[in-house]
Design a binder for these strands. Structure first.
Length: 262
DNA sequence: ATGGTTGATAGTCAA
């Protein structure tokens, strides 16, 4: 059995219902994980997605901020959520497919502007959230699992447009990269995107603030697909749909895909 | 060092 999973920070699922439908129609992943839905679960436009064959959804939401949803053509079982760092935010939800694979959908805190927890509480919360992930994966090591989402960190030098210029910019500071690495190592997670595309610049996010995001191309790879080591070798075909960043009224993130043959 | 844009929501806060 082969299935394709995609992850996309949609930055309001209600405002961009049409873009989600376009992705489901044109790319037709079996499973689509969304972040920043910015919607209570009961206000997600589920009927439109159902009409396209996505009859299953597992989601967590809150008014105005955060929110994660897993849309699927394949049956899903809700297997819960975690609230690392006790933020009370809808930033994680997990679902199990009938083939036994568990999908974790994460929206890691962005962390504010200043990379110093002494003066920026949000940066501390981001580090604490990642420490919570690390401890959880260490205590219950993932198997038959896929982790996707907006992790709000670009770990590698070739995951950003300028390593040197971003070293003090939240999303690429050494302390964040180290903390993300600790969470990844604790779960023995394999970075599927980089397993498939080991070399070269790779971005999934471009700021709204650039005059011409495409020409400037000052991107970062904030969105990730990881797999537990027992299924990582089944992954292939990773890609980032950069074109979606140029759709009308776009999200500032592009969807990331991977296919698993299991 | 600052500004630049977008979204939810109704004056800012978050990204």
């Amino acid at each position: 059995m082969s299935f394709t999973i995609a992850t996309w920070n949609i930055n309001s699922v209600r405002l961009r219902e049409g873009l989600v439908c376009r992705l489901l129609t044109e790319e037709a992943p079996d499973v689509l994980c969304l972040q920043e839905c910015k919607s209570p679960v009961d206000k997600i436009p589920l009927e439109a997605f159902k009409a396209l064959g996505y009859g299953f959804m597992v989601a967590r939401g809150q008014k105005g901020y955060n929110g994660v949803a897993i849309l699927s053509k394949l049956p899903l079982e809700d297997v819960g959520d975690m609230d690392f760092a006790d933020l009370g935010h809808a930033r994680h939800v997990a679902a199990r497919l009938e083939n036994g694979v568990t999908v974790h959908n994460f929206y890691v805190p962005a962390g504010g502007d200043v990379s110093d927890r002494a003066v920026n509480e949000k940066f501390g919360q981001k580090l604490d959230y990642l420490a919570g992930m690390r401890d959880w994966f260490r205590d219950s090591r993932p198997e038959q699992a896929i982790l996707v989402g907006d992790l709000n960190i670009a770990p590698r030098e070739d995951d950003v447009w300028s390593h040197k210029q971003l070293l003090k910019i939240v999303s690429h500071t050494p302390v964040e990269v180290e903390q993300l690495g600790a969470a990844q190592e604790a779960g023995r997670w394999i970075d599927v995107t980089r397993q498939d595309i080991p070399e070269g610049l790779l971005y999934s996010w471009w700021s709204y603030r650039a005059k011409d995001w495409d020409a400037a191309d000052k991107g970062r790879r904030l969105d990730h697909v990881w797999a537990s080591p027992d299924i990582a070798n089944a992954a292939h075909g990773s890609r980032i749909l950069r074109a979606a960043r140029g759709w009308e009224k776009p999200s500032d993130h592009a969807p990331v895909f991977a296919t698993f043959d299991l």
